[in-house]
């Protein structure tokens, strides 16, 4: 019993360190560059660096943070900001729900999964869904923890440092880093999509984001999500049912 526990402890440590090494993977490096862009964005609009580091640690998901900063700048009240951010984060629920069965064992305590779920965002999710099945099941929670906690802490430090460096960058570098965020999100959604409705929602969401910004700029993201997303869902469903109906 004791020997088994020791071996388990060693295995966990081993896989935690293997996860940490994921910091030098391509998706992690792209994300870190995007965070340098985020630091440039917040420095530009004048959010204090302590607040930028704090929100990097506690919010973590980059789209949610971009929306949060947007609401802070527009002077929105707490409830409006909460609604905008929480709506952008609904996708966390299906993402986490899909990840949990991949990494947990029968003995994994729920509290541990609740704590680790905080470190789920697009990059950690894509990374874990792609690589977790190469890791023995008993090491997966440690592997995910090693990767996602390291990635989060590294980016908290990174924004703190980059915040002061970006002011010295030539303007063209700042412009490119800012552009990296949408380009990175766009390609990440495409490569991580497991369902056809994602492609429909991506296309319709892009168009309705601009459309609703022209019509109702203060609620644009919310309206684009709910109306655009519902249209995408209904359209894909209609198409899917017709395909099924036409099948011999």
């Amino acid at each position: 019993m004791e020997a088994e526990a020791t071996i388990d402890g060693q295995t966990s440590r081993y896989w935690f360190v293997q996860g940490m090494r994921g910091l030098w993977s391509v998706p992690a490096i792209i994300l870190m560059l995007s965070f340098v862009g985020f630091a440039a964005f917040t420095a530009e609009v004048g959010v204090p660096v302590e607040q930028v580091m704090f929100m990097t640690g506690v919010v973590w998901a980059l789209p949610a943070k971009v929306i949060l900063v947007g609401t802070m700048l527009s002077g929105a009240n707490l409830l409006t900001a909460f609604i905008a951010v929480t709506l952008s984060s609904v996708r966390m629920m299906p993402m986490v729900a899909a990840l949990v069965p991949e990494i947990r064992t029968r003995s994994t305590p729920t509290w541990l999964l609740l704590v680790l779920s905080h470190f789920v965002a697009i990059t950690a999710w894509v990374f874990a869904m792609e690589r977790a099945h190469h890791v023995p099941r008993s090491g997966r929670v440690a592997y995910f923890a090693g990767f996602s906690i390291t990635l989060t802490l590294a980016n908290v430090l990174l924004v703190g440092i980059a915040y002061f460096l970006v002011a010295q960058f030539p303007p063209i570098v700042g412009a490119c880093l800012f552009f990296l965020t949408p380009v990175y999100f766009l390609s990440s959604i495409w490569v991580s999509a497991r369902h056809r409705v994602i492609y429909w929602a991506l296309g319709i969401g892009l168009v309705s984001g601009v459309l609703f910004h022209e019509v109702a700029p203060e609620f644009d993201i919310l309206l684009a999500g709910v109306i655009g997303g519902t249209l995408a869902w209904a359209g894909e469903r209609h198409w899917r049912l017709r395909q099924a109906g036409n099948a011999p």
């Binding site: 789209p63 971009v66 929306i67 709506l87 952008s88 609904v90 996708r91 299906p94 949408p182 999100f185 766009l186 959604i189 369902h195 409705v197 994602i198 429909w200 929602a201 991506l202 296309g203 319709i204 969401g205 892009l206 168009v207 309705s208 984001g209 601009v210 609703f212 644009d220 993201i221 919310l222 684009a224 999500g225 709910v226 655009g228 997303g229 519902t230 995408a232 869902w233 894909e236």
Partner: peptide
């Protein structure tokens, strides 16, 4: 899934 993706897409746009 559709609503969640459309929200992020609107942010991107």
């Amino acid at each position: 899934r559709a609503v969640a993706t459309a929200l992020v897409a609107a942010v991107i746009a």
